[in-house]
């Protein structure tokens, strides 16, 4: 695996982290994590607020120095070869950092100039990206005048100006309306098909399930589990989940009465989850015990359930 030492050879992994650690003073934000991402893979980091996702992304992006461990991007250490590493990347940070005083189109051109790209390429490219981001009408507006979702779209468009082979997306669709999200997913899917490696963090389970070939669940700076969405669901959850709502006061007290139904129950403030291979059968047992939930719902397990199992917390804030 220490391919990065073989200079000149094409690394098998475009990103390779081992024992990566980041401390802020005494606080450990990223705690000894290791992972490898092969070219063309779509790799996700899933975790609650403060898990260390953005910190990891910033280290990969060559803008934050690690405390210990090794990291190689395209076979290069981002701390030694910052400009080269960053020239390969497209970055969508969690927080938009557009220049709000500049016009929308100029933001794209200015960003391309940082890569030394000529205006003859950037002018038509900016128009193309504006069309992609559905901001053609806003080309001459100041960024200040855009809505939050439009700014997000512009930031995403900006990250593509150098046609990166690796795209780092830190919660890319936060703030986008459902339609814009779906179109972005489609676009990211196409980039992936064209061979772009995607690294993304998200709070949205459906996004992770749609986009990630493989993901790691992180909590408190550590990797709790790793695998494809389907394999994680198989390993950490049952096929189906029965969601019951008894009203906020009763949810906690009813838990004792539900014991023995399904493989496992999970009590949340607003609902009780019963994990079972067969949701219908579990529902029947609930009725047999004379319990009358206000609402009930049977669904397939999702990454949300994996997450709950691994961290004991719900991902949805």
């Amino acid at each position: 695996m220490p391919l990065d030492s073989l200079s000149g050879s094409t690394p098998e992994y475009v990103i390779s982290a081992s024992n990566l650690t980041k401390k802020y003073g005494d606080f450990t934000a990223v705690d000894d994590i290791s992972f490898d991402v092969p070219a063309g893979e779509s790799f996700g980091l899933l975790g609650p607020n403060g898990a260390g996702k953005s910190t990891t992304m910033r280290m990969i992006g060559g803008v934050s120095q690690r405390t210990s461990g090794t990291l190689s991007i395209m076979g290069l250490d981002p701390e030694q070869h910052g400009p080269q590493v960053r020239a390969h990347l497209g970055v969508v940070p969690q927080q938009d950092n557009l220049d709000e005083e500049l016009r929308v189109r100029d933001n794209l051109i200015v960003y391309g100039r940082y890569f030394g790209l000529p205006l003859s390429y950037l002018r038509p490219k900016a128009d193309e990206l504006l069309e992609f981001a559905q901001l053609t009408d806003k080309a001459g507006a100041k960024v200040d005048d855009l809505s939050g979702g439009m700014k997000r779209r512009l930031t995403i468009a900006r990250s593509l100006v150098n046609e990166p082979r690796i795209l780092l997306l830190d919660e890319p669709t936060t703030g986008l309306d459902p339609q814009a999200r779906h179109i972005l997913w489609d676009r990211l899917f196409r980039l992936k098909e064209a061979g772009t490696t995607l690294i993304l963090t998200t709070h949205y389970m459906d996004e992770a399930e749609q986009l990630c070939d493989r993901l790691v669940v992180v909590d408190k700076g550590r990797i709790m589990a790793e695998g494809s969405p389907a394999s994680l669901i198989r390993r950490y959850s049952t096929r189906e989940v029965l969601e019951l709502r008894f009203g906020s006061e009763r949810n906690t007290t009813v838990a004792a009465d539900l014991q023995g139904i399904g493989e496992r129950t999970e009590t949340l403030p607003d609902r009780v989850l019963i994990y079972a291979a067969d949701g219908e059968a579990a529902m029947e047992q609930v009725s047999l015990r004379g319990l009358r939930p206000i609402t009930s719902l049977i669904r397939r397990s999702s990454l949300e359930d994996v997450f709950l199992r691994l961290t004991g917390r719900s991902l949805i804030d």
């Binding site: 080269q84 020239a87 390969h88 890569f115 030394g116 790209l117 000529p118 390429y121 038509p124 490219k125 193309e128 069309e131 992609f132 981001a133 559905q134 779209r153 995403i156 150098n162 046609e163 082979r165 814009a180 179109i183 972005l184 489609d186 676009r187 196409r190 980039l191 064209a194």
Partner: peptide, 19 residues
């Protein structure tokens, strides 16, 4: 966001990341 299948092929970036 709109999608343009052709967008990646129409305009190829004129230099490598190393450049």
């Amino acid at each position: 966001m709109t999608d343009r299948k052709s967008s990646r092929t129409v305009l190829a970036v004129p230099q490598t990341p190393e450049e």
